[in-house]
Nucleic acid binder design. Sequence first.
DNA 1: GTGGTCTAGACCACC
DNA 2: GTGGTCTAGACCACG
Lengths: 125, 125, 125, 125
Amino acid sequence: MNVIISYTSDKPLYLQIKDQIKEAILKGELRDGDLLPSVRAFANDIGVSVLTTRRVYDELEQEGLAVSQAGRGTFVSMGNLELLRDSKRRAVEEDMQKVIHHAKVFGVTKEELQKMVEILFEEEE
Amino acid sequence: MNVIISYTSDKPLYLQIKDQIKEAILKGELRDGDLLPSVRAFANDIGVSVLTTRRVYDELEQEGLAVSQAGRGTFVSMGNLELLRDSKRRAVEEDMQKVIHHAKVFGVTKEELQKMVEILFEEEE
Amino acid sequence: MNVIISYTSDKPLYLQIKDQIKEAILKGELRDGDLLPSVRAFANDIGVSVLTTRRVYDELEQEGLAVSQAGRGTFVSMGNLELLRDSKRRAVEEDMQKVIHHAKVFGVTKEELQKMVEILFEEEE
Amino acid sequence: MNVIISYTSDKPLYLQIKDQIKEAILKGELRDGDLLPSVRAFANDIGVSVLTTRRVYDELEQEGLAVSQAGRGTFVSMGNLELLRDSKRRAVEEDMQKVIHHAKVFGVTKEELQKMVEILFEEEE
DNA sequence: GTGGTCTAGACCACC
DNA sequence: GTGGTCTAGACCACG
């Protein structure tokens, strides 16, 4: 799993990392029971503070997507996979709603938006 | 011009206010040369600090959407209207790209997105 | 005498007006004893508040470049012409010093400055 | 980097500070990626309010000369260096034009200006 | 009355 | 520790 970090983004580091791990889980790159890197190794790998990776793991655990076992490490847990998928899907709808709101204000028509979806969906890597 | 403020939103007050003024300009509710409320009166109206409204006006001026004249007031200026419109349109495209990226990760198909646009576009007040 | 006012300039209105009157005096467009327009007429002409033109006349009087006579009007007075000329000349030197300071910081050479003077001096209307 | 502040100047504090930082960047004293002092430490050092130094950093960031990262600090960024240099050079030309305009009005000849440049350029510390 | 600048505090999220 | 936002005051110049 590759994690890419932008120091210029306004998104906090811990969120950038957490979201990328979540995506990896949703994409199937990470599966139930997989061992995540140790907080220290992970922090070292991607060049952030240990506190930051610990926060990521803490929050993942809180969201039911990981379980920590003292002395063994942190493992992926998919009990909440469906909840995650649902919440993400709702998030997509909410985001789309915002985009449409903005589009309307700036005079973009529905047809232009449809074309945008058409093109961008195909372009996406 | 009605400005609505949410104290629970994670969006800073000054940005909420600034964006609503920008929208009013883009919608044509505010026109070139219109006098904006004084920083004090505005702050009093919407219940925020004078410094907050001042910041809004400062930034609007920096973006070329307003001009302030000491002793006279702050006026709408539309020299940059086209630039604003363009940049906003690009922003819509970028936002749409992000939505589509997320959608793909969560298994939403292009057809579902198209339907989403169709429905949400009509629903929007 | 034509007075041109810029509402977008950061220079205060009263200073813009005063400086233009001073220039007119230095250029010889206004001579000793000439009657200036009444504060009201002048304010009306150039579209500013009466308070503003009054301030202009007050300061001109304070600087010895005008004298007001109750009921008659305000007249140009050149008692201080030499002082004005000298102070203006010193001002030119000070301004030039600032320009040169800036020029050095930005890597403009003495030769480039000389060429600048050469060209701009001829271009000036 | 030494910052000198004049409380008697009519130039606002935040501008005095900002301009000195800009000069340090243009002179090469500050380089891409350099960490600037924290807003608090800086404010304490030079004896102004934290809000004033914050304003300086805010504006530098808006002008693309610095990037701030919450929890890490504010860093020099030189993406816009050439733009800055160009705009400053144009500013020098505009300033010189004003000086020449004034000079002409007050009867200073081109030759006198040339000599002025000659002398002041050498004198400058 | 207007905007422009500055101060001295506060709370928050992030690292 | 860092920056980001917000508050409630103050004084000034300008119109």
